Simulated scan of single mutants.
Amino acid sequence: MPSRPERIPIPWPQRWETIRERAIPAICFVATAAACAWLWRAQSSMAPLVVGHVYGDVVEVRSPVDGRLLMAGGDSSAATPTLARIERDAVCARVARGDDAAQVVEVVAPLSGVISGPPAPTGQFLSKGDVILTITSGVPKYIVCSFPESAPAPPRPGEPVAVRSKAPGAEWVRSTIQAVGPAVETRPPRTPDVVVPETGWPVRVALPAEHEFAAGATVEVRFLPSNRK
C-alpha cells in the first residue's frame, strides 16, 4: 500500500505573505465600514445649531384698478425705504384710474407693519392685481431658518427644536417644526452678523408658547435628536 506523501511545511514568512494578501484587506474593509457606520450615527445624533429669523404675516398690497401709480408708501416724490413703518387703514398708495389723473383711487394698508420690500416706482402703469408693495406685520408669527445641507437627512414636521434669543444669558425654550421645504435653497444674509449665505433646507418653526421675540429679530435654533424610525 503506497504511503501518503509527506506534507511539506510552509515557512512562516510565506504564510505571513498569504495572510497579508488575503486577510488584511478584508479586516481593513470591515473596520472601515464599522467606522463609517459609527460616524454616520454620531453625526445623525448631533444637534445642529443655526441662525433663525422671526417673521410676521406678510401681505402683498395690489392695485385695485388699471392705472398709473401716483404714490406708494406715503411719499409721492421717492420710493419709500424698506422697513418704513405704516399703520393699518392708512393710505399706502394712490393710483390714477387709466390715464385720468382726476380719478384717483386710494389704497389702504390691510395691517400695521413695515414695508418689507421696495415698492413699485411712482409713475409706473399698473394692471389690476399688480403688486404695489409688501407689508410685514410687526406681530411675530413664526421662525424661519435653514437646516444644514451637510446633515444626513432633513428634519421632519413635528420634530423638536430649541430656540433662544441672541441676548447674553438667554434661556432655551422648546418648540416644534411646522414645515420643511422640498429642496435645498440658498438664502442671502439677512442681518449684519450673518455675512455668509445660508444654504440648506428651509424650515419653518412655531413660535414657542413662552417667548419674547419681536418680528424681525434674529434667534438661535437648535435641532434636537428625534425618535424617528
Rank of each mutant, 00 (worst) to 15 (best):
V105Y: 01
T218Y: 04
I135R: 00
V219I: 10
D193E: 15
I27K: 13
G117E: 14
I135D: 01
K166Q: 14
G74F: 02
E21S: 15
P152C: 03
R187M: 11
Y55T: 00
E159T: 04
V30K: 10
T134P: 04
A26F: 13
A42F: 10
P81C: 03
E106W: 00
I86Q: 01
V221C: 06
A206H: 12
A47R: 07
A167D: 10
K128L: 05
A90T: 12
A153S: 12
L207T: 04
V139T: 14
V144K: 07
R190V: 01
T80W: 05
Q178H: 11
V196T: 13
L133W: 04
V180H: 03
C36A: 15
F147T: 00
S150D: 11
T18K: 13
M46R: 15
C28F: 14
S165T: 10
P5L: 11
T122H: 13
E17Y: 07
V108R: 15
R187S: 11
H211F: 02
V205W: 01
A26P: 00
I10P: 08
Q43P: 00
V114W: 05
R4F: 09
P121S: 08
A72R: 04
A179H: 09
R97C: 04
E198H: 08
G123S: 03
R97Y: 07
V51A: 09
C36T: 13
T122R: 14
P11H: 13
P64V: 02
W12K: 14
M1G: 14
V95S: 02
T191F: 12
C36L: 15
S44T: 12
V50K: 04
